[in-house]
């Protein structure tokens, strides 16, 4: 059997390009007004996974937890060269903080089995916490190497990698399986045209059901079952797993499994300030410098 690695990715709102319309009058962020993108450092993690596929023959599995339309980042991953994709979706996962999220992801890893390496982006741009990677490693009781710049070698038993530390770098070796979090240290490849042609037809159960205007419990519909088995045989089936399929403890997922609660959210309001306008002339600047020297800010 081929050795396997799993890359966890996330669909995120594009927080770097928030426009006025994306803020509600109450000052909260209207997620639906923001374009959903592939979390940037998860693309770096995927790229590293694909390089390891080329170097060592790993099978690359990609998984994400999110709403049904997060299947888009999985297709994006298939376009770039991933071999198989898993969507973890269930209403009961909603409201998860990083602890509940890492628990759900650990259930996914345990369901798949025989994973040598787990790759994640260092952090996602919606929360910037960088917590899910280390917490997932702890849940699986495996080592973690954070802030990966490059993987130097993988053999049967260990991985050797270079990672960023304060003011420099470090080369670490750990036994497999290990979890790696990846920083913006490689150039993610674009989708390949051939893969796009093939995998644009890849579907989750929800997507297949939706095309036919049905619910996802289509066990009695022979036409859908036949199409599903066709998609599966062509490797165009995106697995869609819910909490029960993952054998997840319902007390440990979603809002229930989250120790942290949000007390309040405030928007960052630009306080139209008491800015003193200084003309860019010699006189204006002379006066400003004089003032700064007099109040001991300068000199």
């Amino acid at each position: 059997m081929k050795r396997q690695l799993m890359v966890f990715v996330k669909q995120v709102p594009d927080t770097k390009n928030i426009s006025g319309e994306a803020m509600t009058p109450e000052g909260t962020v209207n997620r639906s007004a923001l374009p959903a993108i592939f979390n940037p450092e998860d693309l770096n993690a995927l790229e590293l996974g694909l390089q390891l596929k080329e170097r060592y023959g790993f099978k690359v599995l990609v998984a994400t937890m999110g709403p049904p339309n997060a299947a888009e980042v999985l297709r994006e991953s298939l376009y770039r060269g991933a071999d198989e994709a898993i969507l973890i979706t269930d209403r009961s996962f909603a409201g998860a903080d990083t602890l509940a999220t890492s628990y759900a992801l650990s259930c996914c890893v345990k369901s798949v089995k025989n994973i040598d390496l787990i790759l994640c982006g260092r952090q996602a741009i919606d929360g910037d916490t960088a917590q899910v990677g280390p917490q997932l490693a702890e849940k699986l009781n495996i080592p973690q190497i954070c802030y990966i710049e490059e993987v130097i070698d993988v053999n049967d038993k260990t991985v050797k990698a270079r990672r960023s530390i304060e003011g420099g770098y470090e080369i670490l070796e750990t036994p497999l399986p290990t979890l790696l979090t990846v920083i913006d240290s490689n150039e993610p490849r674009p989708p390949s045209a051939r893969n796009v042609m093939k995998y644009k037809k890849a579907k989750t159960r929800s997507e297949l059901a939706k095309v036919h205007g049905r619910g996802t419990d289509y066990t009695d519909a022979s036409d859908l079952l036949e199409e599903e088995s066709k998609l599966r045989s062509k490797n165009l089936w995106i697995h869609e797993w819910d909490a029960s399929k993952l054998s997840a403890d319902i007390e440990r997922i979603g809002l229930k499994g989250s120790p942290t609660k949000v007390k309040k959210i405030e928007s960052v309001v630009l306080t139209a300030g008491k800015v003193v306008s200084v003309p860019p002339t010699e006189e204006g600047i002379n006066a400003l410098i004089r003032e700064l020297i007099e109040d001991h800010t300068l000199g």
């Binding site: 803020m23 000052g27 942290t260 007390k263 959210i265 405030e266 928007s267 960052v268």
Partner: peptide, 10 residues
């Protein structure tokens, strides 16, 4: 959210 909101968490 990229610094656009300030959250208080408990």
């Amino acid at each position: 959210f990229g610094g656009n909101i300030i959250a208080t968490i408990v």
